[in-house]
């Protein structure tokens, strides 16, 4: 199976701290891969390296064989990677719909066409009834949904989701899981998701990569990974104690 995203020996230091160290993995086309690990493991930093927020100290990121290393975030977006932010970043004073219009304008020249597309995306994420509210007035679960909607509106081939289920109630988690599964199955959207909600990870992902202290400690099928003693010790065990 062809890999859509290829991450090779990616490394990033913040002053002395090795936030990400020689991490490699690949995301096959049409699959859902989960990136898990304890707090501070380097998951978001890995996303930022893929999305072009800062260049890696070492390593390479390729999408469909095209080298993306060193590109700026807007260029990475145009190349086909959409992302959400763990700490949500809505355009607060704009309406929910206009937030998504901005995303759609990544591919559309005309505002009207972008608006049509934005409405379809809002419908899909069950935000249509909030379309005309200022984004700053949304509840946290809706803001998370808005993050996904805006990223989706850029029509990515790969969607990066950074803890979009955190802070959601169980029923809301289930709804979001359904939406994501639907996008993946019906539209063949490839998804790389950082997630702490293990129930969702087990339900959605085809493969799981585990980071700890910036290093990859496991990579495999979900059932294998959760049984891995290193993973249990560094992450799942700690989680169970909480």
């Amino acid at each position: 199976m062809a890999a859509l995203l290829e991450v090779e020996r990616l490394s990033k230091r913040f002053r002395g701290l090795k936030a990400v160290s020689e991490v490699s993995f690949s995301v096959p086309e049409g699959r859902i891969l989960a990136l898990i690990g304890p707090n501070g493991a380097g998951k978001t930093t890995t996303f930022n390296l893929i999305a072009g927020v800062f260049p890696p100290d070492e390593g390479r990121v390729t999408l469909k064989g095209r080298n993306l290393t060193g590109l700026k975030p807007n260029q990475v977006c145009t190349a086909g990677i959409g992302r959400t932010f763990q700490i949500v970043k809505p355009f607060g004073q704009l309406t929910v719909e206009d937030n998504v219009v901005v995303g759609a304008l990544a591919r559309e020249r005309s505002v009207e066409a972008a608006r049509v597309q934005a409405r379809a995306v809002l419908e899909r994420l069950e935000l249509a009834d909030q379309a005309n509210r200022p984004a700053r007035s949304l509840t946290l679960p809706d803001r998370k949904r808005l993050e996904v909607a805006r990223a989706l509106a850029t029509r990515p081939t790969l969607l990066l989701l950074d803890e979009v289920l955190a802070g959601l109630r169980p029923t809301e988690v289930d709804r979001m899981v359904e939406v994501l599964r639907d996008l993946n199955r019906r539209e063949g959207l490839t998804i790389l998701m950082i997630e702490h909600v293990m129930r969702a990870v087990m339900a959605l992902s085809d493969r799981v990569v585990v980071l700890d202290h910036g290093e990859k400690i496991a990579d495999g099928a979900p059932a294998e990974v959760v049984a891995d003693p290193r993973v249990v010790e560094s992450y799942l065990g700690a989680e169970a104690l909480e």
Binding site: A51, V53, K72, P73, N74, C77, T78, G82, R83, F85, K89, P90, F91, G92, Q93, L94, D98, V101, V102, G103, L105, A106, R107, V111, A114, R150, A151, T154
Partner: peptide
């Protein structure tokens, strides 16, 4: 639209292709 996005949240604007 891009200006407003940049005003509100530059990082998110950039991630949206601006």
């Amino acid at each position: 639209y891009q200006w407003l996005a940049v005003r509100e949240e530059p990082d998110a604007a950039e991630a949206s292709g601006v």
